[in-house]
Amino acid sequence: MASPTKPRHCAELLGIGPSIAEMVRPLTQLGEKLARTLPSGLGRVSGAEAPVVRIGIPAEGTLDALIAEETGLTAHSLMGLGPKRLPLLASFEAAPVLRLLDRTFGGRGLLPDPLPTRFPLSAELLLARMEDAIAAALSAGMGGDDVHRVMPLRRDTVLAQLAPFGAGEPLLRIVLEVDEAGAEPWSLALAFPLGTLASALVAPRRKRRAVTRTARPGPDTEPFASLPIEVTAVLVDMTLPFSRLSALRPGDVLPVTVARAVPLRVDGRTIAAGTVGEVEDRVAVQIQNAF
């Protein structure tokens, strides 16, 4: 009588996810996307020209190893991916943050001596803007939908107190080198636990991929929101015969009357109308109608 055969189940039925080695390539591809999308966000943070971002090679590690390597003042930002808030970590050393802060306030990017033991409030506000830029770039790089939306959750300078994920949980860490014109290059590090990487970068199996339709960008969203548009307020619109126009000389006076409804025009098209007034010793137009 033949002995019963031991059943074998595939990894999908057992719920076994990809290994760290299998996630190196997807994370590298994500890093390449960040190198293209993150510069514009960092440029808006610093108010300068968009920097050049280069990616390093993903390295395997654990939270315990990161804590052991921690030296000096560093801001660690815990971020959450999707509705389940799957954790990932962004880390910023103090020196580049303080240099960027000095440049933001018109300085040359000098460091205080000695370095502070904690970030000042102005640096905390700058860190929040940097977190938003990284979260937006990560969201776009992972798909741009609600399932892959990344949001900053909390921040701490002591990684052990932040406890972003399990101490021994396997993770991959990637370093982004940022090269800004006229400033010293700096870097930031992103760390992803294996579970977060698998959910973010591995397409689900045995399911048809849903088609995601993204909404068209509006005038209050990028890339249109920061686009400069020239608006002209027409205070006087008058008609002169050519004979009078050709006879004008310095010192001549033309009596004019400012209309009650001052049109606002963009590229020759009237978009609104308002009345002329004054705000803090400056001429202003109060919008009465918008078309």
Rank of each mutant, 00 (worst) to 15 (best):
P116E: 05
L188S: 10
A210S: 12
F192Q: 01
L159S: 11
L98P: 02
P204C: 02
P112M: 08
E177A: 15
M142T: 10
I174G: 01
R155I: 06
E124S: 06
K207E: 05
R149I: 09
R205M: 00
E131R: 11
V147T: 12
R149G: 05
G143H: 04
L153S: 05
A167M: 11
S139W: 03
L100M: 10
G182R: 10
V150K: 02
M151P: 04
L138F: 03
R173G: 11
L126E: 09
L127H: 13
G109T: 08
S91Y: 05
A210E: 10
L153A: 08
M142W: 02
A183Q: 14
R99Y: 00
L176H: 03
P170Q: 14
L162G: 15
A128H: 13
G166D: 11
H148V: 14
P114Q: 14
A167D: 11
L100V: 10
D102R: 03
L127C: 10
A203W: 04
T157N: 04
L125M: 08
L110F: 09
R209K: 13
S139N: 02
V150F: 00
A123D: 09
L197R: 10
R99V: 02
P112V: 08
L162H: 15
T117L: 02
E180D: 15
P96F: 06
L190C: 04
G195S: 08
L176F: 03
D146L: 12
P204H: 03
R205N: 01
R209M: 08
P185Q: 07
S139G: 07
R206Y: 02
A95I: 07
P185H: 05
P185Y: 04
E169N: 10
A94N: 05
H148E: 00
R154N: 11
S91K: 05
R108L: 03
P193H: 07
V202R: 01
D102W: 00
G143Q: 01
G144H: 05
L110M: 12
R173E: 09
D146G: 09
L176W: 02
A191H: 07
P116S: 11
A133I: 11
E177W: 11
E124A: 06
V178D: 08
T117A: 08
V202C: 05
G141W: 02
V211Y: 07
A140C: 10
E180R: 15
A167I: 15
L176I: 09
G106N: 09
R99M: 00
L188K: 06
T104N: 13
A191G: 12
S91P: 04
A133Q: 07
T212I: 12
P170A: 07
A210R: 13
R173T: 15
A167Y: 11
